[in-house]
Design a protein around this nucleic acid. Structure first.
Length: 646
RNA sequence: GCCGGCGUAGCUCAGUGGUAGAGCAGCUGAUUCGUAAUCAGCAGGUCGGUGGUUCAAUCCCACUCGCCGGCUCCA
C-alpha cells in the first residue's frame, strides 16, 4: 500500500501527502485553512465528513450551506440535534427516522402521547443548550450485527427494524454526547456548528408512511447558519400565512365554503365570480381563436358509460356513489372525457377531420378523503378547463407543441413567467403496446424540445393509459403549483371503439390527448389569489375602481362618473357613505381596489377625476375617457374590447 | 380515513360551573370634510350540533359535524 496520496483541492491546488490524514488536515496543508462556512467536504465528488481519513488519491471540495448538499447536511445534523434533545427530555421516546426536507427537517418518534406546545418549547431549549455545549459529532462504523445489538440494548426497536432491512454488512453510526443514531452521514463536525435552530410544529405521521402502521409523533424544525436567515425564513412563513387564499377569500369576500353546503364545495360570492367570469371569458375567446370547439356536457350519466370508460374499475374510490333514477343507475361525473368521446362518435370521422379539439369548462365531482381537503386547492367539486384532442398518431407532436405554446401564453397573461415541466413515462401497470408508448413518449419529448422547454423525466410516473407532461408554475413566493397537464390516452379510443377513416379507406384508431391549462378554475383561482396576495391586476380585479366623492355636493357627479365608466365596461363601485375621503381611501386600500377616483368640487367643475393608485401613487386628474383608456391598457390584447359573440 | 389542535356577534378575538364581553363592520343621528380611521348613540349571540353529568353547562364528559396542521421525501 502506498503511503503517499495525491490530494487536489477544488481550485486545482494539489499536493502529495502521507496517507492517513483526515480530509480537514489534508485541506489545511494544501490551502492553509478550511473555510469557516465549510460544513463538510466532497471527496471525489461524494459528500463526506471532514474527519474522513484519506487513504487514496482524492480531490477535495468544501461544502457550504449555499449548496443543496450543504443544506441537506446542515438540516440532517439539525434533525439529529433535535432527536438528541427529545431523548434527553423524554428518554422513553423511540427514534425512527429524521431526514432533511425542503426548508428544514423533521424527526419521527414513537412516543406514548402527542407532544404539546410546551414539550416543543422544552425541546427547543434543550437543543439550544446542546448547541452551546458544542459536542463533537463522530462517525463510527461497525458490523450490522453489532449495531443491532447496540440499538436493542438501548431499546430502539425501530432502529433495529431499519437495520434488519439494510443489506450491507457494515453500517455507520453517528454519536454526539450520549446520543447515537444510525446514519449514513455525513454530518457537521459538532453541535455548535448549528447556529440558528427552531422547532416549528408537531403532527402525527405513519411509520413508513403507511396508514396500516402505527402512528408516530413527527416534529418539524428548521435551522440556518445565522439568526438573520432564520428570521427571514420565519418572516416568509408569516407572509405565506398572510397571503393564504382562504384568509384573503374571506377578507375580500370572494368565496366561502360552508358547513351547511358541504366540505370541499365552493360558494362563489359576487366578487369572486366576477374574477372567475373574466378568467373564463379570456379562456373561451382564446380557445375559439385556437381552433377548439366549445361544448357542454351533463353532470351525470348512466353508470354504464363509466363502466365503458373504465372509471368504475380504476377510479371508483374517487367517485361519489351512484344514484338510482327510474331503476337505472346514474353517476355524478368525476371527469369530462367520456362525454367528449361520445361527441366524437356522433359522426363518422375522416382523417381529414382530424385533429378535432373539444374544450369545456366542465364541472366535475370527486370524492376526496376529508383530511386532504384544502381551501380551493383540494376540493370535491371543481371546474376543469378541460379539452380533448382527437388526432392521428402522427399529429401528436404537433398538437402537443401547440398546447404547450398555448399554455405558456395563457400562464404568462396571468403573471406566471416561470414553470417547470416533467415528462412522465410508462408505469409498471399500463395499457397499450410498448410501441405505442414509445411513439407517444417520443412525440411528447419532441414537442418539448421544439418549444425549447427544459424538462425533467419522471420515469414510471405516467398514467396507466399513456405518458404525460405535467407543468408546475412558480408563484410570487417561489412556490411550485401543479396546474397544466397534457396526457396521451390510447386506452379510451380503444374502449369506446373510436375510429376514423384513413386515406386507405379503412378505419383507424385515433389518439386522444387530454389537456388542461389552468387545471381547475378553483385551484387556479386560489393560486392566483396567493400569487397576487389578493391585489389582482386591473384586468382581473373584481372591482377596478372606487369613486369617492369628497362631500355630498358631488354625489350626483360621482354617480354620473360611475355610470359612464360602467357603460364603458369598467367595474366600478361608488362610495357615497357620509365619511371623510381618508376613510374611503383606507377602505378601498384594504379591499385592494386598483384605482380610487376622487371627485371633489374641482373635479366636478372640470368634469374630471383625480386618480390615485392602490399603492398610493397619485396619477393626477384626467377625464373619464382617459381613465377608461388607462383601464383598457391593462387588459390582455385578446380581451381588449372583445366580446364572445364577435 | 388516521393523529393532534380548534369551533363564542357578519369579521378578528377575550372570557367563566351560576345562561356572555371588546374592537371593527351594521343601524340612527350629528358633522360636509381633499388622498390610509370624525364624533355620539343603538342594536346584534339557541357560545358548531346531539346526548349525558349537575340544583345549574358556553365551560365537565361522550358522540357527531366542520375547520386547521400533518400522514412515500430511505438510517
Amino acid at each position: 500500500m502506498s503511503s503517499l496520496v495525491h490530494v487536489r483541492c477544488e481550485d486545482g491546488k494539489s499536493q502529495t501527502l502521507p496517507a492517513g490524514l483526515s480530509a480537514r488536515e489534508a485541506y489545511q496543508r494544501i490551502k492553509g485553512e478550511v473555510p469557516a462556512d465549510a460544513l463538510a467536504v466532497k471527496i471525489n465528488g461524494i459528500p463526506r465528513d471532514w474527519n474522513t481519513i484519506i487513504e487514496e488519491d482524492a480531490t477535495l471540495e468544501p461544502i457550504s450551506f449555499a449548496s443543496p448538499e450543504g443544506k441537506e447536511i446542515y438540516r440532517h445534523s439539525s434533525a439529529h440535534l433535535m432527536a438528541q434533545a427529545v431523548k434527553e427530555c423524554f428518554p422513553s421516546a423511540n427514534l425512527t427516522i429524521g431526514p432533511p426536507i425542503e426548508e428544514g427537517f423533521y424527526y419521527d418518534f414513537a412516543f406514548e402521547r402527542s407532544f404539546t406546545p410546551e414539550d416543543l418549547e422544552r425541546i427547543e431549549q434543550k437543543a439550544k443548550a446542546l448547541i452551546e455545549a458544542d459536542l463533537p459529532i463522530t462517525r463510527h462504523e461497525m458490523s450490522k450485527t453489532q449495531a443491532i445489538e447496540l440499538f436493542r440494548q438501548r431499546g430502539e426497536r425501530y432502529k433495529v427494524e431499519l437495520l434488519e432491512g439494510i443489506p450491507d454488512d457494515t453500517v455507520s453510526l453517528y454519536q454526539q454526547g450520549e446520543f447515537v443514531d444510525l446514519c449514513r452521514g455525513p454530518h457537521v463536525e459538532s453541535t455548535g456548528r448549528i447556529k440558528a435552530f427552531k422547532v416549528l410544529s408537531s403532527a402525527g405521521a405513519y411509520w413508513r408512511g403507511d396508514e396500516r402502521n402505527p402512528m408516530l409523533q413527527r416534529i418539524y424544525g428548521t435551522s440556518f447558519p445565522s439568526q438573520e436567515e432564520l428570521d427571514a425564513h420565519l418572516a416568509k412563513l408569516e407572509e405565506i400565512k398572510r397571503r393564504d387564499h382562504r384568509k384573503l377569500g374571506k377578507e375580500l369576500d370572494l368565496f366561502s365554503i360552508q358547513e351547511d353546503i358541504g366540505p370541499g364545495l365552493i360558494l362563489w360570492h359576487p366578487k369572486g365570480a366576477r374574477v372567475r367570469l373574466v378568467i373564463e371569458d379570456f379562456w373561451r375567446i382564446q380557445h375559439l381563436r385556437r381552433g377548439y370547439e366549445l361544448v357542454y356536457s351533463p353532470h351525470i350519466a348512466r353508470l354504464d358509460l363509466w363502466k365503458t370508460s373504465g372509471h368504475l374499475d380504476y377510479y371508483r374510490e374517487n367517485m361519489f356513489a351512484p344514484m338510482t333514477v327510474e331503476s337505472s343507475e346514474y353517476q355524478l361525473k368525476p371527469m369530462n372525457c367520456p362525454f367528449h368521446i361520445m361527441l366524437y362518435k356522433t359522426h363518422l370521422r375522416s382523417y381529414r377531420d382530424l385533429p378535432i379539439r373539444y374544450g369545456e369548462l366542465g364541472t366535475v365531482y370527486r370524492y376526496e378523503r376529508s383530511g386532504v381537503l384544502h381551501g380551493l386547492l383540494r376540493v370535491r367539486g371543481f371546474t376543469q378547463d378541460d379539452a380533448h384532442i382527437f388526432c392521428r398518431p402522427d399529429q401528436i407532436a404537433q398538437e402537443v407543441k401547440q398546447v404547450l405554446e398555448f399554455m405558456t401564453e395563457v400562464l404568462r397573461t396571468f403573471g406566471f413567467e416561470n414553470c417547470e415541466m416533467y415528462l412522465s413515462t410508462k408505469p409498471d401497470k399500463a395499457v397499450g403496446t410498448d410501441e405505442q408508448w414509445e411513439q407517444a413518449t417520443l412525440a411528447l419529448a419532441t414537442a418539448l424540445q421544439e418549444t425549447g422547454f427544459a424538462y425533467e423525466v419522471d420515469p414510471g410516473e405516467g398514467v396507466f393509459y399513456g405518458p404525460k407532461i405535467d407543468v408546475k408554475i412558480r408563484d410570487g413566493l417561489g412556490r411550485l403549483w401543479q396546474c397544466s397537464t397534457v396526457q396521451i390516452d390510447f386506452n379510451n379510443p380503444q374502449r369506446f371503439g373510436l375510429s376514423f377513416i384513413g386515406e386507405d379507406g379503412k378505419p383507424h384508431q385515433p389518439i386522444m390527448i387530454h389537456r388542461a391549462l389552468l387545471g381547475s378554475i378553483e385551484r387556479f383561482f386560489g393560486v392566483l389569489l396567493e400569487h397576487y396576495a389578493g391585489a389582482f391586476p386591473v384586468w382581473l380585479a373584481p372591482v377596478q375602481a372606487h369613486v369617492l366623492p369628497i362631500t355630498n355636493k358631488q354625489h350626483d357627479y360621482a354617480c354620473a362618473v360611475a355610470e359612464q365608466l360602467r357603460q364603458a365596461g369598467c367595474r366600478i363601485e361608488l362610495d357615497l357613505r357620509n365619511e371623510k375621503v381618508g376613510l374611503k381611501i383606507r377602505d378601498a386600500e384594504k379591499a385592494k381596489i386598483p384605482y380610487m377616483l376622487i371627485v371633489g368640487e374641482r373635479e366636478r367643475q372640470a368634469q374630471s377625476v383625480a386618480v390615485r393608485k392602490r399603492n398610493g401613487q397619485d396619477l393626477g386628474t384626467m377625464t373619464i375617457a382617459e381613465f377608461r383608456d388607462l383601464v383598457r391598457q391593462d387588459e390582455p390584447p385578446v380581451l381588449r374590447g372583445a366580446t364572445l359573440s364577435e
